[in-house]
Design a protein around this nucleic acid. Structure first.
Lengths: 218, 218
DNA sequence: AAAAATAGGGACAACCCTGTCCCTATTTTG
DNA sequence: CAAAATAGGGACAGGGTTGTCCCTATTTTT
């Protein structure tokens, strides 16, 4: 009865269980970007999560087992959360997202029915698209902790998102690659004209110059 | 020499040291919202952080001591990170952000010179404004882990940010409070007309109805 | 020296979001 | 019953972002 409205919908229903507010919102944002026609619910603790699981039907549930009220050092407690959630949403696929990942935990989670196991420090913006695709192809996707060699980031309040984005890519330009080539790559990646990418970069550069700030690599 | 360009600027220079990409980006976003004229740098690991600290002067440094390469269970390792960063930016104020906070850690950090100690599950969007203000007034600000009674969240891809926001508030309406009163509160809070808030709510509602989805509380 | 790349702009249309104002039924409350 | 609250709209201006196209100097590469 209550589920009728949900099931007639063509949207993907997602539930994010994560106690860190900013992380939960970021994951919600990532999921919405990865699944254009989606409805994403967020739960900050297990009580809310269980309530939502009883009243809604989900296609994808993302779980951070490190919730308050459970001993973060107790593996049993962590698995309990995962197990309960899976039992309440048997038709969904389940991801685990954690700040302290281990190989053993992934193996145990997999036995419980988890198909995605992601370390928080290995989730970059846009990465969930790849994860979802890998799950669709291989049945599961694992991204353990990984000390990345990410370049330093630079955010100026006067720049638009596009300008930030283009600038970020341009700052990673390897030596030997001309800017023009980057413009073409960016144009390809964002499905815009290379000339537009060039324009954004130049405008971003102009703004930074006006305020007297330019990162080293121009 | 190299610091000249930075110091002549009227912007607030911020550095975020945090290995979880989504969390780092969220913190960057929060800081930019809290400090309108700011330049925010992000570092995903201690190497990048040290590099930035040597080449830039910062007014505020936010540190997550749980970086890869350090033993997360070792208190000494966590303090080492904080101490090194503070020594390299003696003129800045320092915040520690952590997923596993303890009272003792805060006390130790305070001795090292930290003035803000924040549990990740107690940082909500917009909270940094209050934290910064409290630091300015009292000299420090502490927000330990806190199991909040946050309401469930609901995000629909077709809604604009404003609509999401207004809808979120409306869903928390206590019984006995009329919608009209909420409109007025929202108008006051966002500095818009109550009628506009009403308009956003109605439009959000209409969108959800069209797709056949409405959370329980309308 | 010639060609390519780069810096630094301007103009413009399209689009979305925001915010305000206004309208009419219907339902709920006092 | 009368008044207030609510549902469900339309119109419109202003602002910012996006994306495209076009322009001229200057610098670097070949």
């Amino acid at each position: 009865m209550r589920a009728m409205a949900e099931q007639t919908s063509k949207h993907t229903h997602v539930l994010i269980i994560e106690d860190q507010h900013l992380m939960r919102l970021a994951l919600i944002h990532e999921l919405q970007a990865a699944l254009p026609a989606s409805i994403v619910h967020g739960a900050a603790n297990i009580t809310i999560a269980l309530d939502l699981l009883e009243t809604h039907q989900f296609d994808l549930v993302v779980i951070d087992p490190g919730l308050p009220g459970y001993d973060p050092k107790s593996q049993d407690d962590r698995f309990d959360v995962v197990q309960v959630v899976i039992e309440l949403s048997p038709d969904a696929i389940h991801f685990v997202v954690t700040g302290s990942d281990t190989d053993e935990e992934w193996e145990h989670c997999q036995k419980l029915g988890v198909v995605g196991y992601l370390a928080k420090n290995n989730i970059r913006p846009g990465a969930l698209v790849d994860v979802l695709q890998e799950v669709a192809e291989r049945g599961h996707s694992v991204r353990l902790s990984n000390e990345t060699t990410a370049p330093p980031e630079f955010y100026h309040s006067g720049l638009t998102p596009r300008e930030q984005e283009i600038l970020g890519w341009m700052r990673q330009r390897p030596s030997g690659i001309s800017r023009k080539e980057i413009y073409e790559q960016l144009g390809d990646r964002f499905d815009i004209d290379a000339a537009s990418a060039e324009k954004y970069y130049k405008r971003a550069r102009a703004k930074l110059l006006k305020t007297g700030l330019l990162p080293k690599g121009l």
